[in-house]
Computed example of a mutant assay.
Amino acid sequence: MEALLSIDYTYDFVADDGKLTTGKVGQEIEEALVSLTKQFIESGDFVVMAIDGHDPEDYYHPENSLFPPHNVIGTSGRDLYGSLKPLYEAHQDEAHVYWLDKRHYSAFSGTDLDIRLRERHITKVHLTGVCTDICVLHTAVDAYNLGYDIVIHENCVQSFDEEGHRWALRHFKNTLGAEIR
Rank of each mutant, 00 (worst) to 15 (best):
S106E: 02
K102Q: 00
G26H: 00
H54D: 06
I134L: 09
R181L: 14
V34A: 12
L4Y: 08
P69Y: 07
N145S: 09
I115S: 09
E28T: 07
F160V: 07
H171P: 06
Y9H: 13
Y144F: 15
S76K: 15
T10K: 06
I122S: 04
L4W: 07
Y59H: 13
D149F: 06
K85M: 12
S109D: 12
H61D: 12
S159Y: 00
L5S: 09
L66T: 07
L20Q: 00
F46K: 12
V125L: 07
T175H: 12
E179I: 15
P68K: 01
M1L: 10
G44W: 02
N155F: 06
P68C: 00
G147Y: 01
V125K: 00
Y60W: 03
L176T: 11
E179H: 10
I150H: 02
V25T: 15
S109H: 13
M49S: 06
A95C: 05
G110V: 02
H54Q: 13
R118V: 14
L66E: 15
T37L: 10
S76A: 12
R103F: 05
E63G: 06
D12T: 03
V25S: 10
Y59E: 14
S83I: 14
R166M: 07
T139D: 01
R103Q: 09
L137W: 05
H121Y: 09
V141C: 01
Y11I: 11
V136M: 01
R103C: 05
P62N: 07
G77D: 02
P86S: 05
P86Y: 07
T139C: 02
I73C: 03
M49H: 14
K38A: 11
L117C: 07
R118C: 10
N64W: 10
W99Q: 05
G82E: 13
D79H: 14
E163M: 08
G147T: 03
K24C: 03
E63P: 03
Y88N: 01
A3F: 05
E30H: 04
L117A: 13
K85D: 08
G44D: 04
T111S: 06
L113P: 04
H61I: 06
V48M: 10
M1V: 11
T175M: 10
L33E: 08
R166Y: 11
L146I: 03
Q92V: 10
R116A: 12
V25H: 01
C156N: 09
L5T: 03
